[in-house]
């Protein structure tokens, strides 16, 4: 959290443009929020992730109740991802069929995840589970991606061709029934693995309060071995559908969607998102992946290490759940 607090403190001295948020029931500085939207939108467009894993901690460190932060940033994720999907679909780099299959699993997973979230929150143990999930999931994915992309970059420096991936798809994937063609991804596999990945990611993402792009992208690359060019666009399409459902569920079950906050964030987000997409073309894929791996690792360590650092104040007020 400290790094995020520093990030927030580094913002230029905010001009006094405050607005009162009706659901969060507090006032925030509009420019700070737009700036945050641009920043997270940029990361989102560049790497094809929702950016929730970056935005939620910053919002919370600015004093917004966690439940409102998680639910409202869904609006930002939704707008940024929609705008990005449109851009990617122009260059035919969205596999709608694959995205729909994964989203079907994702929606079911999200419903299950929200229930687990509620139970854990009632037990007061959600912090522990969220921190551990960040540490384990982000730590391992970030480490794996960093190692792989650094190896590729080193080989390119030496002028050697990158090795063909030794292990193709896990063999058992071919043995599954209900095969479908995914022409855009260059795959002919059962729909069970993508749907199962979507389900798992849906559960984890609902519990961690994020869109799940940083989980989907590596899963598409390393497990499904989809054609690299469609990975980011398809992941964003999947995120649009899952987030659409999540946002409505949050509004209905928790009344925690602050539309004003969402609108401010997404105003910056769409601009940052477009800038990110343009910037993405200037980098090589392995370089992008290395940068994203470092960001993921840092976010994971940040949350995970909070388990080991003695808290400044041992007592914490937690939301009662019912306003």
């Amino acid at each position: 959290m400290q790094a995020f607090a520093i990030l927030a403190a580094l913002e230029p001295e905010p001009v006094n443009v405050d607005i009162y948020l009706p659901i969060a029931e507090m006032s925030v500085n509009v420019l700070t929020m737009i700036g945050l939207g641009v920043l997270v939108g940029f990361v989102s467009g560049l790497f094809g992730v929702g950016g929730g894993f970056l935005m939620a901690p910053v919002l919370v460190s600015l004093g917004i109740p966690p439940s409102v932060a998680v639910a409202s940033q869904a609006g930002h994720v939704l707008a940024t991802s929609t705008s990005s999907v449109m851009s990617y679909s122009q260059s035919d780099s969205v596999d709608y069929r694959m995205g729909a299959v994964m989203a079907a699993g994702g929606v079911v997973g999200a419903v299950i995840g929200v229930e687990i979230f509620r139970i854990l929150r009632l037990l007061g143990q959600i912090d522990l589970v969220v921190s551990l999930a960040y540490l384990l999931v982000l730590g391992s994915i970030g480490g794996m991606m960093l190692k792989e992309s650094l190896t590729a970059m080193l080989l390119r420096r030496k002028g050697e061709a990158p090795p063909r991936p030794k292990v193709k798809r896990p063999v058992w994937i071919y043995g599954l029934p209900f095969k479908m063609r995914f022409p855009r991804s260059g795959l002919y596999i059962s729909f069970i693995p993508p749907a199962a990945i979507g389900l798992l990611v849906g559960i984890l993402s609902a519990m961690m309060g994020v869109g799940g792009g940083f989980l989907i992208v590596p899963a598409m690359i390393y497990i499904l071995r989809m054609k690299a060019s469609v990975v980011v666009g398809t992941s964003l399409f999947q995120i649009v559908i899952t987030t659409f459902v999540t946002m409505i569920l949050q509004a209905v079950r928790n009344h925690s969607v602050d539309m004003i906050l969402a609108l401010i964030l997404l105003a910056g987000g769409v601009i940052g998102g477009q800038a990110g997409i343009r910037m993405a073309n200037r980098f090589r894929a392995d370089e992008l992946r290395a940068i994203m791996a470092v960001i993921i690792l840092m976010a994971g360590l940040q949350m995970g290490l909070s388990l080991f650092v003695p808290p400044q104040n041992p007592f914490v007020l937690v939301p009662t759940g019912q306003p």
Binding site: P22, I23, A74, G75, H76, L78, A79, T80, S81, T82, S83, S84, M86, S87, V240, F244, M247, I248, L249, Q250, A251, V252, H255, V257, M259, A262, L263, L266, V270, I271, G273, Q274
Partner: peptide, 26 residues
């Protein structure tokens, strides 16, 4: 609206966000 008509509020909010995203890409 968020408290009395949560379904309407949620669906309209989500649609507005998608709409703004589409508009921005245009």
């Amino acid at each position: 609206t968020a408290h009395r008509r949560p379904w309407l509020y949620g669906i309209v909010s989500a649609l507005i966000c998608i709409g703004l995203g589409l508009g921005a890409s245009r």
